[in-house]
Write a protein that binds this DNA or RNA. Structure first.
Lengths: 358, 358
DNA sequence: TTTAGCACTCTTTGTGTTAAAGTGCTAACC
DNA sequence: GGTTAGCACTTTAACACAAAGAGTGCTAAA
């Protein structure tokens, strides 16, 4: 549901923007009298009152009760984000920190996303979410078996998505170390690039044949590969700076805080949102848009990170619905762009900031 | 400060235990009248009242205000845990789950600790802490360099503590893949078993000499090794099930919840506690024992996990001071014992449960 | 030594009152 | 017609105050 700009007169837009800005600053419902102090609104409180009544009728504002200032509705915030928001430009310090991150040359995606999320959280002062979906069809490009002792080795798997997985494999017997090494090579030759369900019995038999007398190493290794490829904990969501929520009055209500902490534990829901999201722009879920009803008064801003066309993660910021959108959106946008650049080698231009959902 | 048993008459002990039990069950201050319903206490409320007054004078009980039932003090809980608690025995289901964990043969310590913490949290219904200190003198037993492309490789490090670390190393130039492999072997030969500060310039020069014309691969690799060994985020604390806190009324007070969430973010403090702790038994920090004042009304129970005499991690449970101690202590004890067994190969007998601090 | 009884203290809960904030509407004004 | 001033109305927030409830401490009796 796109909200066309021409629904609203220029003055209504001005007033709506002023209300959202004021509410973001003050955290409290804003009244008509308060708005008269804005020099751009050279009208009396009564005029503004009339406009506010109309904006409310249109669904952009809400009344907590019969008479105490107005608060933007989800739709109001949505319009603000889509049409009224002006681009935040980063300070020198912020750009510096961002460059720091990019020059770390920490090319392992997992760690990169964690770091970026931490940075995003500290830059915005909201809680960060480091999201790493485990893609359904994860494949391994290269296997390497590193002997630990005679009867066990570490299987290192370089996946297609700039990550490294390791599994400790315990064998039932003693085997020569050279054979373990050879197993790695054989696995790479036979099943690299295949997803879990493409590793068929004939393939496994082929590997066992190649391993000759040492065929009994194969089965435990394959089991571990299955585990790694179809990891039961199907994705990972790390929460960075949950305590930051508490500085905002909306979370001094225990039940609301509870909802939020619950959301953090139900990582599936977050992963689902990321999976369903538009991966070309910054996504902004305001309030209870998009079904997750626990976050009725919160907003989630995130952008996915792609590698070779595949979504491999996302960094997000979650905070009160009354958040500093321009700041948060541009931070998330810049950081995810920085990571994509780092991972894909070439710099993709950051997307336009605006987004639409619902 | 050990509390000798003979400070208290048998009846006082009985009453103290009854008070702690009742308070754990009900969550509210307990009064003299309430206690008369315990059939073991065949006394009138007045008699119990007198005893309670004395217990309070001795410091075992506290008065929230002039007149509303008593609550155990830190000292009261301490005495309860040290002297009055009887061993909780696990149900068949719990033993089953525990065995499940042990049979997973997931020999990577990190993952093992995470799994066990998750299990401990769900078994006790309190928040779990998966604690992995980065030992000061972390050493690498074996290096392996796995080429990714001509100018980068993944450096896999098998550390002395059953963990695997990987670092992505980006080189400034193109190098043959065989040389990358040879670098791994050379590193293993020259600096395996050394800690970060033992990797001196002569050693590095030796490695460069051995790599001959390819000496320029060495410096980026060494840098990564330094990073890995002295990882700035010097340890890792994962919080499992923070939302479980919210079911306990002590955390419906926002400021207390805030303190707890804060504690979760200040991982250093937790790591310090683990580092200072007695590693031979289950540690129980009750209330504000041991300086961490943010957890005034909470208790932390944890036990370290040792491998080859070194503390390599800990699993812990944190919850309201009014927690089910017997349950929590035995769960933590069993799970950490199971991990130690799994890691050290041989089964160490679980320690005695009791503990003392402060 | 134990118990019954009672006065006392302190919290909790509910109620009524007042002040403040902000709206909605009407009528006047430019 | 758009804008403004004025005023009645509504609702919350804050405060005080009273009544109820719970549990103790103490005294005196069993």
């Amino acid at each position: 549901m796109k909200t066309p700009d021409n629904d609203l007169s220029a003055r209504k837009k001005l007033i709506l923007k002023a209300i959202v800005d004021a509410h973001i600053d003050e955290g409290e419902p804003v009244g008509s009298k308060y708005l008269t102090q804005y020099k751009q609104l050279a009208y009396s409180s009564a005029t503004i009152r009339n406009e506010m009544a109309e904006l409310e009728a249109m669904g952009y504002l809400e009344h907590p009760y019969t008479s105490s200032g107005r608060v933007p509705s989800n739709l109001g915030y949505r319009f603000y984000v889509d049409a009224l928001l002006q681009q935040y430009s980063m300070t020198a310090q912020e750009i510096f920190e961002l460059n720091q991150l990019m020059h770390a040359k920490m090319l392992e995606l997992d760690k990169l996303i964690d770091r970026a999320t931490k940075l995003a959280s500290s830059m915005t002062n909201y809680t960060g979410l480091s999201i790493k979906p485990r893609p359904v069809s994860c494949t391994v490009n290269r296997f390497e078996a590193i002997p630990v002792d005679g009867s066990s080795f570490v299987l290192v798997m370089l996946t297609g998505v700039s990550t490294v997985k390791t599994k400790y494999v315990k064998l039932d017997d003693e085997f020569p170390k050279e054979e373990m090494h050879r197993l790695g090579i054989t696995l790479t030759e036979c099943i690299s690039g295949l997803s879990a369900d493409e590793i068929t019995l004939p393939k496994i038999m082929e590997i066992e044949r190649r391993m000759g007398a040492y065929y009994r190493m194969v089965s435990p290794a394959i089991k571990c590969i299955y585990d790694a490829l179809s990891e039961t904990d199907s994705g990972d969501v790390k929460v960075e700076g949950a305590d930051l929520l508490l500085q905002y009055p909306e979370y001094s209500d225990v039940s609301r805080l509870k909802g939020m902490l619950n959301l953090f534990e139900q990582k599936d829901q977050l992963l689902q949102m990321v999976a369903d999201a538009d991966d070309s722009k910054v996504n902004v879920f305001i309030g209870s848009e998009n079904s997750v009803n626990t976050m009725n008064d919160s907003t989630l801003v995130f952008k996915t990170i792609k590698e070779g066309g595949r979504v491999v993660g996302a960094i997000g910021i979650i905070g009160p619905r009354r958040m500093n959108y321009s700041r948060v959106i541009s931070t998330v946008n810049q950081l995810s762009a920085a990571i994509s650049e780092s991972v894909n080698g070439s710099a993709l231009p950051p997307d336009k900031n605006n987004s639409e959902n619902n």
